[in-house]
Amino acid sequence: MTLSAADVAHVAVLARLGLDGAERERIGSQLEVILEHIARLQQVDTSSVSETAQVGELVNVMRDDVDGESLPSAVALGGAAASDGGYFVVGAIQDNELDG
């Protein structure tokens, strides 16, 4: 399989990684080698098995719907680069055209 430059650029956008041209090229060619190795997955017969998403036996773990301890908002905001009046501050979101 070959990974085109456009594929790599597309995946970088999906991953929100602003890679420069040289980095895209290097990572792209490394991914190609890795994907070539990974192709051996297709040799395994999986016609009679289902997917494993997790190996634990626990399902639908719930707790009682009661208030518990939680972080005070000032503490939760404490690691943010910018906050104001109990909110995280970010730039305008109307420009998000990368996926378009």
Partner: peptide
């Protein structure tokens, strides 16, 4: 920081992550 939110994401993650992390995020996203 960047006035555009998307640019802020791209620049932050480009600057903040090392090459192996970028490689794996790319592989996983793909």
């Amino acid at each position: 920081d960047d006035p555009s939110l998307t640019e802020m994401y791209l620049r932050t993650r480009d600057r903040g992550f090392g090459v192996e992390v970028k490689r794996r995020v790319m592989l996983g996203t793909y």
